[in-house]
Simulated assay, not measured.
Amino acid sequence: MRSQENGPIKIDGIDKMILNAFMENANIPVSQLAKDLGISNTAVHQRIKKLETSGVIDSTKVIVNPTVLGYSTMSFVGVFMNKPSSYKLVLNSLEEIPEVIEAHFTTGNYGIFLKILCRDNLHLMNVLNQKIQQIEGVTRTETIISLEQPIVRQIKL
Rank of each mutant, 00 (worst) to 15 (best):
M1G: 05
Q4R: 10
Q4W: 02
N6F: 07
N6L: 14
G7L: 13
P8T: 06
P8F: 01
K16C: 11
I18K: 09
L19S: 01
N20M: 04
N20P: 05
F22Q: 09
M23W: 04
M23P: 06
N25M: 02
I28F: 00
I28W: 06
V30P: 02
S31M: 12
S31N: 10
Q32D: 15
Q32F: 05
A34T: 14
K35F: 12
L37I: 07
G38S: 09
I39K: 05
T42M: 14
T42Q: 14
T42V: 11
A43M: 07
V44M: 02
H45N: 11
I48L: 13
K49F: 07
L51D: 04
V56Q: 07
V56N: 10
D58P: 04
S59G: 08
T60P: 00
V62I: 13
N65K: 11
T67E: 13
T67N: 11
V68E: 10
G70F: 08
S72D: 08
T73I: 12
T73G: 02
T73L: 15
M74Y: 03
S75L: 04
K83I: 05
S85Q: 06
S86P: 06
K88N: 10
N92G: 06
L94M: 01
E95H: 10
E96Q: 15
I97L: 08
I97A: 08
E99S: 15
E99Y: 00
V100R: 01
V100W: 13
V100P: 00
V100Y: 05
I101H: 03
I101K: 09
F105Q: 06
G111C: 07
G111A: 08
I112P: 08
L114F: 06
L114R: 14
I116R: 03
L117T: 03
L117H: 10
L117V: 13
R119G: 15
R119L: 00
D120V: 11
N121M: 15
L122W: 02
L124Y: 02
L124G: 02
L128P: 00
L128Q: 01
Q130N: 14
I132E: 00
Q133F: 06
G137M: 01
G137S: 06
V138E: 05
R140L: 01
T143N: 04
T143P: 14
I144K: 12
I144F: 15
I145P: 05
I145A: 00
S146M: 01
P150F: 13
V152M: 11
R153L: 12
I155L: 10
K156N: 08
L157G: 03
